[in-house]
């Protein structure tokens, strides 16, 4: 266990030093949030709901940052580190066989924390008022909801060849966010498609929780199914990958 901790600590240090990681998990979502939120008037609500645009974008971009933090860095790192033999090198240590992937899960789970918090802080400074309990609940929904994306990152890292990871990442990241309503509220056909995606459901769940709306069990079920499915796929890809390393 100390080995996994030592490796996780180094993973976190690496993430903090990496400009690309900082860009995708912190700067990019924050700037997009600022741009989107400033374009709306305080108090202006999303059509057919009682939530303001600013609150909507707060949750949308916090979930966008969490998605980036959980998915993109791990997928890229796992693929690269497998290709470059780092995983083989770790197999020559007393680190438990699953220590590498555990440290990746741990570091992704830690990396989503600042991604969410920073958008929250910026949102609060722009006049989004929520009770403390609602801030905490929204944070927990986004944070735990990001596990689905952590699992996807691991599945992509082990399952996709290193030179294609970037492409798959961008597809999942951008298309998932677009159809999940991360960039703007969806209506009509787009929303119908988006509803089957975890990006939509995690954002909607957090939004419902703070607006006091009814939380549909179908939404929770869809998110759980994605988490379980991606988790299973990650485990399969991981096992296949370990045999090939």
């Amino acid at each position: 266990m100390t080995g996994v901790l030592a490796l996780t600590r180094l993973e976190v240090l690496r993430a903090l030093r990496n400009r690309r990681v900082m860009f995708f998990t912190i700067l990019y979502p924050t700037v997009l949030f600022l741009l989107s939120a400033s374009a709306t008037k305080a108090g202006q609500t999303v059509d057919g709901t009682n939530i303001s645009y600013r609150t909507y974008y707060l949750i949308a971009y916090a979930s966008f940052g969490a998605l980036g933090a959980a998915l993109t860095t791990n997928a890229q790192k796992i693929a690269t580190e497998r290709k470059e033999g780092w995983i083989r090198q770790l197999r020559l240590t007393a680190l438990p066989g699953n220590g590498y992937v555990l440290s990746k899960i741990a570091s992704a789970t830690l990396a989503t924390v600042p991604a969410i918090i920073i958008v929250f802080v910026v949102g609060a400074s722009m006049g989004v008022h929520l009770s403390f309990a609602k801030w905490v609940t929204a944070f927990l929904v986004l944070w735990i909801g990001a596990l689905a994306f952590t699992a996807m990152g691991i599945a992509i890292g082990y399952g996709v060849p290193q030179d294609s990871v970037q492409m798959v990442n961008i597809l999942v990241y951008v298309a998932g966010s677009f159809l999940g309503g991360q960039f703007f509220p969806l209506t009509g056909a787009l929303e119908s498609i988006g509803k089957v995606l975890p990006t939509y459901q995690v954002r909607q769940l957090a939004t419902d929780v703070i607006s006091g709306a009814h939380v549909p069990s179908s939404g929770v079920a869809i998110l759980l199914a994605w988490t379980a499915g991606a988790g299973t796929l990650a485990a399969l890809m991981y096992r296949r990958g370990v045999d090939a390393d």
Binding site: G3, A6, L13, R14, W86, Q89, L92, A94
Partner: peptide
């Protein structure tokens, strides 16, 4: 091992420290 790059975004000292910690 014969081939492969070393970890990115870490110093040599940090890498060696990790490997030493991973040893019984």
């Amino acid at each position: 091992l014969q081939s492969g790059g070393l970890l990115s975004d870490v110093t040599v000292r940090e890498l060696v420290t990790l490997m030493s910690r991973l040893h019984p």
